[in-house]
Design a binder for these strands. Structure first.
Length: 759
DNA sequence: TCTGTAGGCGTTTTT
DNA sequence: CGCCTACAGA
């Protein structure tokens, strides 16, 4: 029927179809036109994936005549969602406000705001962020009389999160428990959920998990959305975890028009529960699936693409895919070996400076990619030195700054008086004489009587408490009551301004007078300004236009802030050097990319090098990083690196050795500072002929390490067995060595106790 | 209850 | 090395 309209429809439709399909290669065109039935689009890096997805949506609406409310499209980042929406609307020449296009999380919040009553919860819930969630874990531990020094709250949170990603509520976890640790953790999990429910709060994981739970338990609700969404599209399918998988596949069950797009080689979120099998098994899930491979790369030059392909080729169990580029020729990949991390930063920044001054490349063409956020520091210092504009993506979010969170917590408490975390945060900010002891007493009372913290403060007063503290509490409570009345019905920006005024927050900062306090005031002003913008845009929000006012403006605002990431605010257009992790860089491209810290233990990261799965994910991450580069890719490694104040000697990343030598250009600096000597590597079996080989001599001249201890050498330990030496630090008998044992994994041992012998 | 300081610990990666 | 937490003293 869809094609019928395209063929016989009005002239305009045909024209639109032509304009959508024009400029697409045959595979892309097929991916757009094959609208019916299950479709898997394997889209390699730089293959025009976003264009295909947006064209497909525009085609469905504009050519096939599918109403936009029958389409659901999910992405992983708000940025991707926003970009797709803009492009669809541009193609169609009109806004499509009933099209559900958003991140998994934002789609789920919107859905839960409508339907969560089925699960016996209130639709006025708040979303707890990581910090809130961690303190809920601590509270749960306290209720189980567990010492947070014995049971690590972060680890517990991590475990709970994994269960959520796997689609398991506490009851379901309890079913199939094997080890004793998990048994205790699952009880903590149950308590954790209890505390959240009492606070009328959901954490990130809940947004997905509870949506799936809703569909599992209420088939009629599921049926409603199954009927509504005739076409389901999923971006970055290789990064979906169990719940996300279940969610989209449940929704697509009725019409079976499910189109997933992804690249198994770019699956880098396994640690967050993503399961690469979701995409690998798509053809098993849908035996009638059409598979379309987009293998033509429009982004990178030959050397960059070949280099990246050569690295990822070392992974086993891949879906084979041969990328080829339209961009023949171009420069080789460069490699720079730095003496230490400062030297590395200095060199990279000078390259950028030269590129800008000599070759007139805008700063915005350059990106520095690293494995961990902590690595940004040296580069920032160096960039500051030369006054080069830069932006670090993924550091502290604006909305995570203390003063901003405080302001938002006031708002949260107004929206939801049960929000204990928000209350704890602001009760003594500014200081009003209500300290830890008082809060603890109230918390005690609250858990005894099963009330919220705010209510507990109320009953403390009713109990006839007198004195200084009671007076402070009384003032606070009446302030909150007044605030709630005053703020009701106001626009979000006015509400925020009002909160800051009435709480005494602003005046306390003003009285402070320190430069830090001034910065905070500025940040708060910026917050109010952004809230004004939000309010102005609010009128055109899709869900309001759809005629279904699902959330109050406050809820909408808080939801959006809770789900926004640092990356979403990032503006590629601006002329600045971009610094970010390889993870954050996914989906982006830059003419000139520097991948730094290419060392064993850093990239691949030590904690991911334990098993093959971890290592393969690191390799995919490396592939993602390299394929961000369009014209120029430079890799660098430091010989010596300070971590936690201690210096250690580094081995070059194994990934470097996987790049064919003939497409790499060693910078003249290699081997230069005299302490750095390249020596032929003899011991590495994976090092095949013709590939890069640039092991370093292991220690600087004059170092008096035990001559027996050599990086890369194989040793035997009485308990851990045989392993390879990765790093050493310290001197003499106090030398500590990191060893990766074949069986026992990574360990750090001290020479004087370890009694190592060569293996 | 608040403030200063010493000690401990952390770094994967993020919606 | 730096941040955050816990604790001691006022």
């Amino acid at each position: 029927m869809a094609l019928e309209i395209a063929k016989h429809g009005r002239k305009g439709t045909r024209l639109l179809a032509d304009s959508i399909l024009a400029g697409l290669n045959p595979e892309q065109r097929r991916a757009v036109e094959k609208t019916e039935g299950p479709v898997l689009i394997v889209a390699g890096a730089g293959s025009g994936k976003t264009r295909v997805l947006t064209s497909r949506i525009a085609y469905l609406i504009g050519v096939c005549g599918i109403p936009s409310e029958s389409i659901l499209a999910v992405t992983f980042t708000n940025k991707a969602a926003g970009e797709m929406r803009t492009r669809v609307e541009k193609t169609l020449g009109q806004k499509s406000k009933t099209l559900w296009l958003g991140t998994f999380h934002s789609v789920c919040v919107r859905l839960l705001r409508r339907e969560i009553a089925h699960l016996g919860m209130s639709r006025g819930f708040v979303i707890y962020d990581d910090a809130d969630s961690l303190s809920v874990v601590k509270e749960a531990l306290r209720r189980h009389s567990l010492d947070p020094k014995v049971v690590d709250p972060r680890r517990t949170r991590w475990r709970i999160d994994q269960w959520k990603n796997a689609g398991k509520l506490p009851a379901r976890v309890a079913e199939g428990l094997s080890d004793i640790d998990d048994e205790q953790t699952s009880e903590i999990y149950a308590t954790y959920q209890r505390i959240l429910a009492d606070a009328n709060a959901l954490d990130f994981g809940d947004l997905l998990l509870l949506t799936v739970e809703l569909f599992r338990r209420f088939p009629e609700v599921l049926a409603h959305y199954q009927r509504r969404w005739q076409y389901v599209l999923v971006d970055e399918y290789q990064d979906t975890n169990r719940v996300q998988y279940e969610l989209v596949n449940l929704l697509a069950q009725r019409h079976r028009n499910i189109c997933v797009v992804g690249d198994p080689d770019q699956s880098i979120y396994g640690w967050r529960g993503a399961d690469i099998r979701n995409i690998m098994d798509f053809e098993k899930d849908y035996s009638d699936a059409s598979v379309i491979k987009l293998e033509r790369n429009y982004r990178s030059t030959q050397a960059i693409l070949s280099g990246a392909a050569a690295v990822v080729k070392n992974n086993h169990d891949r879906l084979d895919k041969t990328m080829f580029t339209e961009r023949e020729g171009g420069d080789k990949i460069r490699f720079f070996a730095a003496q230490d991390e400062r030297d590395e930063a200095q060199w990279v920044v000078r390259q950028i400076l030269a590129s800008n001054h000599r070759d007139h490349n805008p700063y915005g063409d350059h990106a520095i990619l690293y494995r961990t956020n902590a690595q940004s520091r040296n580069f920032e210092e160096e960039l500051l030195k030369y006054n080069i504009p830069y932006v670090v993506v993924g550091g502290v979010r604006f909305y995570d700054r203390a003063e901003v969170k405080d302001a938002l917590s006031y708002l949260r408490l107004v929206v939801n008086p049960k929000d204990d975390q928000a209350l704890r945060r602001i009760i003594n900010r500014p200081t009003r004489g209500i300290g830890k002891t008082t809060v603890d007493r109230a918390a005690e009372l609250a858990s005894r009587e099963g009330t919220s913290l705010l209510e507990a403060f109320g009953s403390m007063l009713e109990g006839g408490a007198a004195g200084r503290t009671a007076k402070s509490v009384k003032i606070f409570l009446s302030m909150m009551t007044a605030l709630r009345e005053e703020v009701a019905g106001q626009s979000i920006d006015h509400a925020l301004a009002c909160v800051l005024e009435r709480s005494g927050y602003l005046s306390a900062l003003a009285a402070d007078g320190t430069p830090e306090a001034e910065t905070r005031v500025d940040n708060l002003k910026e917050l109010v300004t952004s809230a004004e913008d939000f309010h102005a845009d609010n009128l055109s929000l899709p869900e309001l236009v759809e005629g279904e006012l699902e959330r109050s403006e406050f809820e909408l605002y808080l939801d959006q802030i809770a789900l926004i990431s640092d990356l979403d605010d990032y503006d590629v257009q601006r002329d600045h050097v971009s610094l970010m992790t390889a993870h954050s860089a996914k989906g982006l491209e830059f003419p000139r990319v520097f991948m730094v810290g290419m060392e064993e233990g850093v990239f691949p990261h030590a904690s991911a090098s334990r098993d093959d799965d971890g290592l393969e994910e690191e390799r995919r991450l490396c592939y993602v990083g390299m394929t961000r580069a369009m014209e120029h890719l430079t890799l660098s490694a430091a010989h010596e690196r300070r971590r936690w104040g201690e210096s250690s000697y580094q081995m070059p990343s194994r990934f470097l050795q996987e790049i064919p030598r003939e497409i790499v250009e060693m910078e003249g600096e290699f081997g230069e500072p005299p302490r750095l000597r390249a020596v032929p590597s003899t011991s590495r079996s994976r090092n095949r002929g013709g590939n890069l080989d640039h092991s370093y001599s292991q220690e600087p001249a004059g170092d008096d390490l035990d001559p027996q201890i050599r990086k890369g050498m194989r040793v035997r330990h009485a308990v851990f067995g045989v392993g390879t030496i990765l790093n050493s630090r310290g001197q003499g008998l106090n030398t500590k060595i990191d060893i990766r044992f074949d069986k026992a994994g990574m360990k750090t041992v001290m020479v004087k106790y370890a009694n190592l012998e060569p293996a």
